[in-house]
Simulated assay, not measured.
Amino acid sequence: MQKMITILSGENNLSGVLHLPEYRNETIPLLIFVHGFVGSKVGEHRLFVKAARYFTERGYGVFRFDFSGCGESDGDYADVTITNQLKEVQDVINYLSSIRGIDKHRITIVGHSMGGAVASLTAASDTRIKQLILWSPVGKPYEDITGILGPKAVHEIVRQGSHDYQGFMISQAFLKDLKKHHPIESVRSFMGPTHIIHARADEQIPKEHAARYANSLNTRVNAEQVVEQYIDKADHTFSGYSFENELFDKSLAWLEGNQAERFVVQK
């Protein structure tokens, strides 16, 4: 089952899609997908749509949504900051936690790229998040995103206050806000199980961030050890059916295998 949902966050309506398994007798675990920089709930080459269908067929509920200024949601990208996106994720979790049939004790947040940074920061501060999965996550928001924008764009933003990046207006406030957030350090506050998968041929975000996240998480006391995984030859968005399938299969194996005793998925 697939249902379009609109969630009010501040003055903006966020567009989302809830996917539920066809057969379910009890409460189900939920995956919340968080997209990245200038992304959407569809994802590059429909990555999140394919992921939603993959996991729903295996007994999971999935929610994917557009941040404000993205996809079909209200707002303009000129007003986007990570701080605002963190508030929007909170409103999304508030809404989803009230849905009948969702197991509040089995909520996993899955973040790709900058969504990985947002997911990490969310998990670190919201105890409703029980598991965290990161796909090629941004680890140093300012350095990573300005690296994508390029020095000319950054100079224009500093000099003129904004830059038109592929039809998305990037503001000076956005860049300043990036400097406030340090997800690799902050994620240590999250005590739940975490899994990291990075594209080994990532051309946008350093694959070394996977080990940096794992090393940070492994400084926690009385928390499960984290071992990062890689997908050989995959680019940042895992373009290609073989890369997508490996990404989904590795994530599912971790969800069902590594956490089998704690989270029993009803088939």
Rank of each mutant, 00 (worst) to 15 (best):
110 V>H: 12
51 A>G: 14
79 D>N: 13
247 L>I: 09
100 R>P: 06
154 V>N: 00
264 V>G: 07
201 A>H: 11
109 I>M: 08
105 H>L: 11
69 G>H: 06
219 T>F: 04
232 D>K: 15
181 H>L: 01
30 L>H: 07
194 T>V: 15
2 Q>K: 13
250 K>S: 06
245 N>H: 12
177 D>F: 07
145 I>G: 11
18 L>T: 01
230 Y>H: 09
152 K>T: 13
11 E>Q: 12
129 I>R: 05
25 N>F: 07
241 Y>F: 12
170 I>G: 07
10 G>P: 07
173 A>W: 11
212 R>S: 14
173 A>E: 14
220 R>V: 03
171 S>L: 04
75 G>M: 09
31 L>D: 01
183 P>K: 05
18 L>N: 00
198 H>W: 02
184 I>T: 05
25 N>T: 12
133 I>Y: 11
199 A>L: 09
119 A>M: 02
159 R>H: 15
39 G>A: 01
211 A>V: 04
91 D>I: 00
48 F>P: 02
26 E>S: 15
220 R>N: 08
254 W>M: 04
110 V>I: 12
46 R>V: 00
197 I>F: 09
99 I>N: 07
261 E>I: 14
34 V>C: 15
166 Q>V: 10
235 D>S: 08
88 E>I: 01
171 S>K: 03
131 Q>V: 05
165 Y>R: 06
248 F>M: 10
121 L>M: 10
157 I>L: 01
14 L>H: 11
47 L>Y: 09
140 K>N: 13
190 F>A: 10
22 E>T: 13
7 I>C: 02
98 S>R: 15
82 I>G: 08
103 D>K: 01
173 A>C: 06
92 V>R: 07
154 V>A: 00
207 K>E: 10
41 K>A: 06
260 A>Q: 14
198 H>T: 04
91 D>P: 02
95 Y>D: 00
132 L>A: 00
165 Y>L: 06
116 G>W: 02
101 G>Y: 09
6 T>D: 14
131 Q>K: 12
28 I>E: 08
239 S>A: 14
167 G>T: 04
160 Q>S: 15
2 Q>I: 11
175 L>H: 03
72 E>Q: 11
240 G>W: 10
99 I>A: 09
191 M>R: 12
36 G>K: 05
73 S>D: 05
235 D>F: 11
169 M>L: 11
220 R>I: 08
204 Q>L: 15
174 F>Y: 15
134 L>Q: 05
198 H>Y: 04
54 Y>E: 06
26 E>F: 15
119 A>H: 00
104 K>N: 14
107 I>R: 08
259 Q>K: 09
225 Q>V: 12
218 N>V: 08
71 G>V: 02
55 F>R: 02
